[in-house]
Each structure stands twice: as C-alpha cells, then as structure tokens.
Amino acid sequence: MTEPTPVPTAPAAASGPPRKLRFHVLRHDPRDPASVPHTEVFELEEAAGMTLFIALNEVREQLDASLAFDFVCRAGICGSCGMVINGRPGLACRTLTQDLPADITLAPLPAFELIADLSVNTGKWMRGMSERLETWVHSVEQDPDLRCIEPTMDPELADRIYELDRCIECGCCVAACGTARMREDFVGAVGLNKIARFALDPRDARTDADFYELVGTDDGVFGCMTLLGCHDVCPKGLPLQTQIAFLRRRMARTGLG
C-alpha cells in the first residue's frame, strides 16, 4: 500500500502581509429603550485558520466586551451559531475567514426573536415547533421490557432515518425561507423534515391522517412555495427538497383521499 504524502494542514502562509478584515455587525439590544439597530464596524488582522468563532471572540476580547453572540460546540455540530454571513444564513463556527472577502457583514438570523446583536432565540422557536408537531416517537408499546432483546430494524432503514435525524435545529432553513417571513406560524423545513423522519420510522404508530392533522395546512406543507432556500443553506446538507416534495404529495393524497 502506498502511503499518501503528509500534507501540511494549516493554510499555507499567505504571500504578503495578512489581510485587514472589516466586520460589519448589525447591533441592537431590544431591551434597551435607547438602542436602535445599527451597523458597527470592527477591524481585525486575519490569522491562519481563522474562523468566525475565533474572530468574534477576538472582537469581544480586544474591541468590545459587550458584543453578544452564541457559540457552544464550535465544531459545527450543535447548531448554536447560525447567523447571516454576507447575506447567507450559515454556521459561523465553521466558516473560515479565508473563504470570505475582507468586508464581512454579520447579522442575526431573521424570523427568530432577537436577544441582542447576533444572538437569537432559536431554542424557544424550536421547542414551540416540537410541541406543535409532536416530534417524538409515538410508540405502540408504552413500557417495553428493557431486559429483552431489542426489536430488529432493517439496517438500510435505520440509516435512512438517521439521514433525516441529522438536523441540528440551527434555524438556517427558517431564516432562508420566504414563507416563514410571511407566515409567522409556518413550521419551516426543519418541522417538515421532522414529520418526514417520524413518518419513515416504523416505531412511530402515527398514520398519514395523523400527520395531515399536524401539517396539512398553509402553515404546514402546503405553505411551502418551493423557493428552496432551505435546501441551499442547510449546513448538514439534508435532502429537504426531496422530503418536502414527498411529504406534500403524501399529504395531498391524504387530504383528497
């Protein structure tokens, strides 16, 4: 077996001096009556391998201790740091500055309650969505005997369920959604994907008629205008386009049926 050549993984030292980055950050504290939304510019020198996580923490440490933003895992798995980066919703922690121009515009995700600056209350929105759509397995058997061998599941099916289960509820799909901007109660691609996930899961006893009760409206699957911003921005690359189309056909059939 031939061994691949080890590659230096840190970005090669750029030729010339490091770039000066200008972060144009939309700032506002809705609880402060004196606050008006405005853009503030912070300048930083770019460093090798710099992500927006590193950059924003540097801004906070060196330039403005009051700047509000959310990071948790800083590894692209928890979904805390969704924000609008140069006009496009994405996860800030895994966005490298080297992939962006020197002028970087950062704004909070729209469609969610603003906490302050770049911090929005996605948690509250997601909990509401989960309660409405009952995003849990509705088991036939309430209290299985845990000592016994688990029921089998087709390995391919388990993989297909995980495929849809990979959603991290970051809210980027909702922020990129035309319908969500017009209809406050639209469940978004995140909600529709969850219904598709539970509809696929044989452990969930709900039928299409049950799911129709949850998403068979304009706030559900029929509200989608197929603009598919959700599909384009999903950081996990979930097959949202296919799932929404599939769910809509299924729900239309149920509704007409």
């Binding site: 299985p144 688990e150 390995p155 388990a158 993989d159 369920i161």
Partner: peptide, 19 residues
C-alpha cells in the same frame, strides 16, 4: 447500559444495525 440502549431504541434513536 444494555437497558439504556434498548430504551433509547424504543424512543427512536436510529442505532446503526447489524447486516
């Protein structure tokens, strides 16, 4: 621990399965 895995299976965790 085995009971926990089985409980989570009942709660919908899509454990990777044996082929």
């Amino acid at each position: 621990a085995p009971k926990a895995v089985r409980e989570l299976a009942a709660w919908g965790v899509p454990w990777s399965r044996v082929r």
